[in-house]
Design a protein around this nucleic acid. Structure first.
Lengths: 247, 247
DNA sequence: ACCACAGTATGGTCTGACCATATTCCCCCA
DNA sequence: TGGGGGAATATGGTCAGACCATACTGTGGT
């Protein structure tokens, strides 16, 4: 005989995932709705509770459900929408595995930042989050603090662009590079130049000048973090964030 | 008393994840290396095998490990690098939950396609994959086939840009939109215009003209899939792809 | 030299138990 | 009648142990 295909029986938890996904699409479940309990789901789908739990871990990893213990309307598995956490974990792990280089992540960030700034300018963004972040950035005492509000500023730009997907990507990319950004700011010492850059970006967005906003972001990033694409040696890295979510 | 913080005990599988991640960074594990078996890991970390398995599901979901049954050097949990699958699952689920709109995904795709084309042009891409995809596209008999090779063409562009992260994003975004692309091509009927677009993109990349490549991609996508940002009603959707990976 | 088969390590699955937590219910007391 | 407090309960979290299917490994016989 010839031409056999490998059978590849699907695993039980994959069945569970498919069923849950079908139920989401079919029943029109949305964020905030609850899934049946693990025991009930196991009985309905004729699998063990372990398999249901493995499926839940997958959904949790993808930022689609959050599990709460206890009793009551808020307990159990609730549908949520947190794509950014999943992306952050993805980037951190693949960076750790060296299956993605820092340079690739930095390049992707530049792409998204430019795009977001341009779209925020065209989109007529809500500027209050930007001004608040700018203000806190000016008052920051440490590099960590500065970077925190710097990130908030750029994430606010991404959110102002009106695209939740690119905003989630922006947040994840920023989070992944946080450690390097802090180092770059420390090396730089003086942040007045960075503040001027940010104000220029802000003005361009407020004026609705997409091209200028994009250019301002590009120059800012190149100037702010010139050495960010030089990978650190392994010994230089701290433990960093770790996997695992909580709703 | 006041100022209590919620304790937030970490779950056992989160511990396992953290330990594995630490081991990857510390021991310098890379793609192709094997993790200890589930039973051994459970004993080492003093948790049950179930908890180890839940951690494995997370790592598998993120495209970082692949589990093989059986015995021998290829069996067990092997470190891999498949970020695209994770991104595809993420997009599909969040689209299903309506926590991301089709328009947002399409916009993100346009961003990445333009960026990739421009970078491929600058980068001096390997053109063989592009020509092969172009040729097969020309011979395609059905819309499905056409879209398949169309996707291969654009993914090849992204890979030619030299950035594995944006390439993975491109593949995932394309996969998520595949169904709509097929529909758009069917509605269009004639593909000679699309072929001309693709040749123009190809010429721009071969000539190293980044601006022209980017512009050609933008015009192509706007012309090829004009209705792609109009969401389909629920009844129109087929079952679509489902979750679950295999190494 | 080769082949067949037993041995074994691996993930996949299930069962059933127990724990921790948080809400809900209900009874008793004021 | 109202309220307080404890029991009941539903939820996820964890564990131990068993068994199965799979696929390599080694061994012994031909």
């Amino acid at each position: 005989m010839s031409g056999w295909q490998p059978v590849r029986r699907t695993r039980a938890f994959e069945d569970v995932l498919a069923q849950i996904e079908r139920r989401i699409a079919g029943d029109g479940l949305t964020v905030g709705d609850r899934l049946p309990g693990e025991r009930q789901l196991a009985e309905q789908l004729q699998v063990s509770r372990s398999s249901v739990r493995e499926a839940m871990r997958v959904l949790e990893t993808l930022g689609v459900v959050s599990s709460q213990v206890g009793r009551g309307p808020d307990a159990g598995a609730v549908l949520i929408s947190r794509p950014a956490g999943a992306l952050t974990d993805l980037l951190r792990l693949h960076l750790g595995l060296a299956s993605l280089s820092l340079e690739e992540v930095v390049d992707a960030r530049l792409m998204i930042e430019k795009w977001s700034a341009a779209h925020a300018a065209r989109h007529g963004a809500d500027l209050s989050a930007l001004t608040a972040a700018l203000e806190r950035m000016g008052e920051a005492a440490t590099a960590e603090e500065f970077v925190e509000h710097d990130t908030a500023f750029h994430v606010a730009i991404a959110e102002a662009s009106g695209n939740r997907l690119t905003a989630a990507m922006m947040r994840s990319l920023r989070d992944s590079l946080r450690r390097y950004a802090v180092e770059a700011v420390e090396r730089l010492g003086d942040t007045t130049g960075l503040m001027a850059d940010h104000r220029r970006i802000y003005r361009a967005i407020a004026a609705g000048d997409a091209a200028e906003a994009s250019a301002a972001v590009e120059e800012h990033l190149h100037r702010a973090y010139p050495g960010i694409s030089r990978p650190l040696r392994n010994e230089d890295r701290g433990p960093g964030g770790q996997l695992g979510h909580r709703g």
